[in-house]
Computed example of a mutant assay.
Amino acid sequence: MSEGFAAGALVGYQYWKDAPAIGTGQYAVAFDPVTGAPTAMGEARDDFDIHALRLGVKGTAEFDMFDIQAEAAWIPYAHVSGALGGSAPGGFNFPGVPVTVYENAQTTLSGRGQGVMLEAMAGFHPTENLALRIGGRAWYLEGNLDAVFNGTAGGVAQPTMTLPSTYASLFRYGLRAELTGKF
Rank of each mutant, 00 (worst) to 15 (best):
R176S: 08
A131V: 02
T166L: 07
M161C: 09
G154Q: 01
Q26N: 13
R54E: 07
F92G: 04
Y77F: 15
E142G: 11
L170C: 07
H51V: 14
V29H: 01
W139S: 12
T39P: 13
A7E: 01
A6H: 06
T108Q: 08
Y77H: 13
T100P: 09
L130A: 02
V80Y: 10
H79F: 14
A153F: 01
E178T: 04
P159D: 01
I22T: 10
F94S: 02
A120D: 04
A44W: 07
Y167I: 10
T160V: 15
A19M: 13
G111A: 02
F92Q: 03
M117S: 12
M161W: 02
S165G: 11
V97D: 00
G23D: 01
E43C: 08
L130R: 00
G25N: 14
A177R: 01
Q106H: 08
P89W: 12
I68G: 04
D46G: 07
F92K: 06
L118K: 03
A7V: 11
A168E: 04
P33K: 08
T152G: 04
Q106G: 13
T60D: 03
T166M: 06
V57A: 10
N129F: 08
V148P: 11
D146E: 00
G8R: 07
A78C: 07
L175E: 08
A6L: 13
M161T: 13
Y27E: 02
A28T: 04
Q106V: 15
G143F: 01
G151K: 06
T60C: 07
L55D: 01
D67E: 05
E62G: 04
F48D: 06
A7P: 12
L145H: 03
